[in-house]
Amino acid sequence: MLRNGASRLALRSIAAPTARPAASFHRTSPIQQWTTQFGSMASRRPQLPQTAQLKPIQAAIARRNITEKQRQAESKYAHEEIKPTPETVSSTSSTHPIFSEVATETPTKEVDMMAGVKHDVGTVKETFNLSAVPREAYYMGLAGTLPYLATSVSTVYLAWEINHANSGYGFLMSETTAIQLLHLLEPLQIGYGASILSFLGAVHWGLEWAGFGGYQGYKRYAIGVVAPAVAWSTLLMPLEGALITQFLGFVGLYYVDVRATYKGWTPNWYAVYRFILTFIVGASIVVTLIGRGELPGHVPSAVTRAEVFHDKGASEEKLSKDEEARAAKKKEAARSDDRGEDK
């Protein structure tokens, strides 16, 4: 076989990586080889592809092993002409999102971070949608809660007037006037609350007579009987106890109305409608209790006033007896004077 300079150079370049000086060759034990290959920092360094480590002639020989399909693909990409598309170039076309995979398409629409909150708000609006409630019932029901709300706000204002009275006078009225108005509001609020509670129970009698959802008999009649019974009992209680009892009565009747709506005894909108009314009345009761809790100690409550009136009656009787005893003593003294003059 003939050899020339070029063939010797090619063979020398192929054999070059394997030729090492004998002095630099050190045999290592299997344990040291394991540590060097897998445990050292050298194994963690980025490595170049196997083709890139070869010399040009070695790479040319290794590339002869590629298939015909791969060679055609290389030829296609080598002769492919890249067309300019300036319309697709923008300030963000050469970047990719930080929180996404590399080489993925940039989202054309920004992610709405408030989407979950908006969905929850929409659910609440849909739940409490009152569009199905008849406008007449809705407006008249809200108007019916205004007297209860007015007495509640008035109680808080009068309590503030009494607490901030300076030398017997508050912002708009005297302390005595504020106390008298406060005592006047107490039976008004309790009486009106009892009327509302009785009315809500009577609604079920009307539904039973109309046969809405079928005739339920004693079950639905009982609702209309228990509600006014509870409302009537609050008229005999002290103020704070009456307010708390009416609050429990409104909440309990709301639960009954919700169950009746689910069973089909009432219209579908009645449960949400009752929630709005119960919330307003319940909030008014809570505000009234808070306002009365801020009253000073010298303002008598309902029970205390009864004791005061009782003591006042006893004192008046005692005072009349004292006056009669004094008059008797004066008459006796006048008679004794007359006897002395006669002598």
Results as ranks from 00 to 15, higher is better:
residue 200 L to H: 10
residue 137 A to H: 04
residue 87 E to H: 10
residue 343 K to Y: 11
residue 53 Q to P: 01
residue 127 T to E: 03
residue 170 G to A: 01
residue 129 N to C: 03
residue 256 V to Y: 01
residue 284 S to M: 03
residue 50 Q to A: 14
residue 246 Q to S: 08
residue 277 L to S: 07
residue 287 V to T: 07
residue 219 K to F: 06
residue 53 Q to V: 09
residue 33 Q to S: 09
residue 310 H to K: 15
residue 291 G to C: 09
residue 262 Y to W: 11
residue 315 S to P: 11
residue 74 E to M: 11
residue 64 R to F: 01
residue 103 A to H: 06
residue 206 G to I: 03
residue 31 I to S: 09
residue 158 L to I: 04
residue 338 D to Y: 01
residue 272 V to P: 00
residue 317 E to S: 14
residue 132 A to D: 15
residue 237 M to D: 00
residue 20 R to G: 03
residue 302 A to K: 08
residue 84 P to V: 14
residue 195 S to L: 07
residue 182 L to S: 06
residue 22 A to I: 09
residue 103 A to T: 04
residue 270 Y to Q: 10
residue 245 T to H: 09
residue 13 S to F: 02
residue 57 I to W: 03
residue 105 E to H: 09
residue 77 Y to I: 10
residue 37 Q to F: 07
residue 226 V to F: 08
residue 220 R to S: 06
residue 166 N to S: 12
residue 222 A to V: 10
residue 288 T to K: 05
residue 11 L to H: 07
residue 19 A to C: 04
residue 326 R to P: 00
residue 82 I to E: 09
residue 174 S to Y: 10
residue 25 F to C: 01
residue 298 H to D: 13
residue 224 G to L: 06
residue 225 V to E: 14
residue 289 L to W: 12
residue 153 V to M: 01
residue 6 A to K: 11
residue 138 Y to E: 07
residue 156 V to G: 13
residue 7 S to Y: 02
residue 309 F to E: 05
residue 16 A to H: 15
residue 140 M to G: 03
residue 138 Y to N: 02
residue 334 A to G: 08
residue 59 A to G: 12
residue 103 A to Q: 09
residue 269 W to A: 12
residue 146 L to W: 07
residue 124 V to H: 06
residue 136 E to Q: 12
residue 68 E to H: 06
residue 183 H to Q: 13
residue 195 S to R: 01
residue 281 V to M: 07
residue 19 A to W: 12
residue 195 S to E: 12
residue 21 P to H: 10
residue 55 K to Q: 15
residue 61 I to N: 11
residue 261 T to Y: 03
residue 155 T to W: 02
residue 329 K to Y: 01
residue 316 E to P: 10
residue 150 A to N: 05
residue 79 H to V: 01
residue 142 L to Y: 04
residue 320 S to K: 04
residue 52 A to L: 06
residue 183 H to M: 04
residue 258 V to G: 00
residue 160 W to C: 11
residue 49 P to K: 00
residue 94 S to P: 00
residue 250 F to H: 10
residue 136 E to F: 06
residue 316 E to G: 12
residue 327 A to E: 13
residue 275 F to N: 07
residue 244 I to E: 03
residue 195 S to T: 14
residue 240 E to L: 01
residue 204 H to P: 06
residue 98 I to L: 12
residue 216 Q to W: 14
residue 15 A to Q: 13
residue 319 L to V: 13
residue 264 G to Q: 04
residue 226 V to G: 03
residue 179 I to G: 00
residue 251 V to E: 14
residue 175 E to H: 02
residue 228 P to C: 05
residue 202 A to E: 11
residue 314 A to I: 15
residue 147 P to I: 00
residue 265 W to M: 12
residue 314 A to Y: 14
residue 62 A to K: 04
